Amino acid sequence: MRAAYALILAACLSACGDDKQVDEKNASTAQVAKKVADAGMKLTPGRWELTMKFNKFEVEGMPPEARQQMQAMMGQSRTFASCLTKEETEKPDGSFFGQTGEDCRYDSFTMGGGKIDAAMTCKGTEGEGTASAKMTMVGTYSADAYDMTMAMKGMAPNGKAMAMEMALVSKRTGECKGDEDK
């Protein structure tokens, strides 16, 4: 899930309303963050509310009880609030995108004209139970909102195949209140 949040944060940061475009291939999250910052693409600082809804979550060999719990969660949404500071929008780095190492890299990252299309590969670390995955993200954005779909396919830490798809909708709702999840 850390890699999923890297994609979400990349989408958050990559909001702008002009014709600037960022195209990267085989790039780290830090490289993408720098390109986005250099292009002047920023979100509006303040309180952001993200609503996340799982449309699909499957793990090979999932026990029936766990499958029933996941099915009950499908279609339900969860909302999280975060406070995005002016400093975070001015100087993003790899940690802002959720990853600072080289385990996850963007295969491609294209953003401009209010649209984003990205693909990322994360490699698990042998012996640590870390999952490996390929993720895609497609959607629309502005300085104050975004709407996208993220899909992930890969191997769970137990070595079983897994697939997930979620819808993400976020918007700036005003100034930070101090009660955000972050």
Rank of each mutant, 00 (worst) to 15 (best):
N26A: 12
D117I: 01
L9E: 14
K115G: 12
A10W: 07
T121H: 11
K20Q: 13
G98E: 04
Q21D: 11
V22W: 01
Q31G: 07
E58L: 13
E180T: 01
E60T: 08
C16H: 08
C12M: 13
M70K: 06
K115A: 15
Q69Y: 10
D144N: 09
K177S: 15
G129H: 03
G61N: 09
G139H: 02
G75A: 02
S95T: 11
T173M: 06
A4T: 09
G174R: 01
L43Y: 12
D23K: 04
E24M: 12
E180K: 02
R47W: 08
A15S: 13
A10D: 11
M150F: 04
A33K: 00
R67V: 10
G159W: 01
C16L: 06
N26E: 12
Q31R: 09
R172S: 08
A145T: 03
F57V: 09
G46H: 02
A163S: 11
T51L: 06
T140C: 02
P157I: 08
E49W: 03
M74W: 06
V22T: 04
K123Q: 14
T149A: 05
D18R: 02
K35W: 03
D23Q: 10
D147P: 01
K160H: 07
L50E: 09
Y5I: 14
D181A: 12
G17Q: 02
D117P: 03
Q99E: 14
G178D: 01
M152H: 00
T140L: 07
M155Q: 08
T29C: 15
V169E: 05
M148P: 03
E49C: 03
G112E: 01
T149W: 02
L84M: 13
V59G: 10
K25G: 11
D117A: 12
M74A: 06
A119T: 10
Q71M: 14
E126V: 12
N158Q: 10
T125Q: 06
K177W: 09
A4P: 06
T79I: 05
